[in-house]
């Protein structure tokens, strides 16, 4: 049998550092999208509670240890880093672990870098810790969460990984150049 090579979405592309901002790939994890069936919202929330998580409000995430549950759209959340046992039959589940490129951007100017590509206000006042937005990165669909004071977790479709890294790297270098010029 052929021996297949397993590559992560950003293999060979990351990490990149410029101007004190680092873009790195997050380790591979289980990702399951959860869309509760009609009238099963409370039951789904109970199962997630038993995992130490819960059903996130729109624009929020609930994290515990390495696992988290991110709101990802109307009636949908992403369960990351934990199995979806107990949700069969009460929610539409889909394994998306191979479908996403997950990255973390971190550093004092990470907000300034993202401001060049993401059309939402990411200042701490408007987008605090554990806030989540589904929006755009350039022309790509993006799921973004603030996971630290200066750190954001980014998720784009795996097929867009190279473009996302390119766009973010260009923005990082441009912000770094401005910083050097002043």
């Amino acid at each position: 049998m052929a021996s297949l090579l397993e590559l992560t979405p950003c293999e060979g592309l990351l990490p990149v550092t410029a101007g004190g901002v680092t873009l790195a790939e997050l380790p591979p994890a289980l990702i399951t999208s959860i869309a509760p069936f009609e009238a099963k919202q409370a039951a789904v929330a109970r199962v997630l509670k038993s995992l130490g998580l819960g059903w996130p409000r729109p624009g929020r995430m609930i994290a515990r240890g390495d696992a988290c549950c991110l709101w990802s759209g109307r009636g949908q959340a992403m369960l990351i880093g934990a199995g979806a046992a107990g949700l069969e039959g009460i929610a539409a589940l889909s394994d998306q672990g191979d479908g996403w490129a997950r990255m973390r951007i971190e550093g004092a100017h990470s907000e300034a870098v993202l401001a060049r590509l993401v059309p939402v206000d990411l200042s701490p006042a408007a987008f605090g810790k554990a806030d989540v937005a589904r929006t755009a990165l350039g022309h790509m669909m993006l799921l973004i969460a603030r996971t630290g004071g200066q750190a954001f977790d980014l998720m784009v479709f795996r097929s867009m990984a190279r473009t996302a890294v390119h766009e973010l790297t260009v923005a990082m270098k441009a912000v770094a150049a401005r910083d050097n010029a002043t």
């Binding site: 919202q41 624009g59 009636g75």
Partner: peptide, 8 residues
């Protein structure tokens, strides 16, 4: 699509 019951 209906009143959203999951939050704000």
């Amino acid at each position: 699509a209906g009143p959203e019951r999951q939050g704000r």
